[in-house]
Amino acid sequence: MALVEIDNISKNYQMGEVQVQALRNVTLSIEEAAFVSFVGPSGSGKTTMLNLIGCLDKPTKGKIAVDGKQVNDLDRKQGAIFRGSVFGFIFQAFNLFPVLTVHENVEYPLVMIKNESASDRNEKVLKALEAVGMLDQQNKRPDQLSGGQKQRVAVARALVTRPKLVLADEPTANLDHKTAVNVIRLMRDMRDKFNTTFIFSTHDPGIMEEAEIIHTLEDGQLTHSTPRPLNGKEGKNDSNI
């Protein structure tokens, strides 16, 4: 059984008097440990797709199952609990908490969502920070970091709870090309290390090349899906972002 199964979903938005169809009759499935990207121009439905998979929004029509659970009918609280147990999120604007240090930002899901003991938390946070190469920056605040460093912290925060699936909406849009490639490769390394499924959206051709499976969206429709074996192509992550 696939980790994500999307069955004929559509999503409509009401913009004033106009109804916008963000997604139209999309059906696809994503296997565990996959490294998948949704690509397409602005307004093609990439963010909507990620929001629906991540239980941040509900489809107008169709069904979505994640990790074997139908997520269409989850209420606000159930949705939050499900997101906390299954997903990690990486955002375009990093969305780190400005009042918390790097260590505390990564620790946040373990405190507020997992209720783990202090010793367990510390061990997991240090491991996650080490994995993304940010251990030496753990006492800094987000405003003391570069864009690439912030996104590394965001990756660590997304992975610290060991989620089955990490969703990253345009994770490289605010980064220069070199940094962006390094962040994507870091994500792929984490997939290899933790066997976590990564789904990200991008409209940058250089970045989409890094994905193993590329789903292309145009005007809310899935136009084609391209498996791309990466054997021999991977470059090592450059942690000096």
């Binding site: 991540g54 941040l56 606000r76 609280k77 939050a80 609990i81 499900f82 997101r83 906390g84 147990s85 997903f87 990690g88 999120f89 955002f91 604007a93 969305n95 908490f97 946040y108 899901p109 507020m112 969502i113 925060r157 997304a158």
Partner: peptide
């Protein structure tokens, strides 16, 4: 608002 959205997205329950 965005921060609240982030908290909620990563799994913080409305009660918390």
């Amino acid at each position: 608002v965005r921060e609240i959205g982030t908290m909620s997205a990563i799994g913080t329950t409305p009660g918390k």
